[in-house]
Amino acid sequence: MVGTDTSELNAARAALVEALVRTGDEDRDAFRTVYRLTSAKLFGICLRICADRQGAEDVLHDVYLTIWNRAGAYQPGRASPISWLATIARNRAIDWRRRQARTRAVGVEDAEAVPDGAPAQDDALLAVEAHARLHHCLEGIESRQRAAIRSAFFGGLTYAELAVQAAVPLGTMKSWVRRGLLALRGCLDGDA
């Protein structure tokens, strides 16, 4: 089903790992390679969560400074370097969004447009198998629970924001997400 060639995936990942390791030696060319290989993915994450172009640019700027400063300790033992980088970007963007939310109302509808569940077949850097399994398990849980979990992940939304977005009481939203996560864990464990 998934058309990404395994050797292509391994080569892309190896290139990124190598560039990260060399970035750790303060190799600016290697850092540019890391940027070239990952900036579109990480900017997509920042833009979606910040829902503000300038904010997303500021966050991405900080994310790459972090990568430059921390790549020195990077060891190529981590299975998916792009996941490591994407997690940094997502968390920084969430921090930014929540700081903004305290000073002005950020519309939750800004984060409403969530990517559909179709597996991305062109992303050679991400583990295809883990992706297929997570999607399989997400498809298996109740639709409102699934929608809430996806909104939380892609929008960086809190329980309170999710409840407003879905127009349900906070307790109902918590219950949906918790039960969805419980079912998800059962499925992921069972498929291992």
């Binding site: 900036s39 700027h61 400074l65 179709a118």
Partner: peptide, 22 residues
């Protein structure tokens, strides 16, 4: 586990000036 969802995230080209700023 959740990191697998990063594959679904649409890539968006970062603005050209950002690399220079970094």
């Amino acid at each position: 586990r959740l990191a697998a969802l990063f594959a679904d995230w649409p890539a968006v080209a970062a603005p050209a000036h950002l690399a220079a700023r970094i």
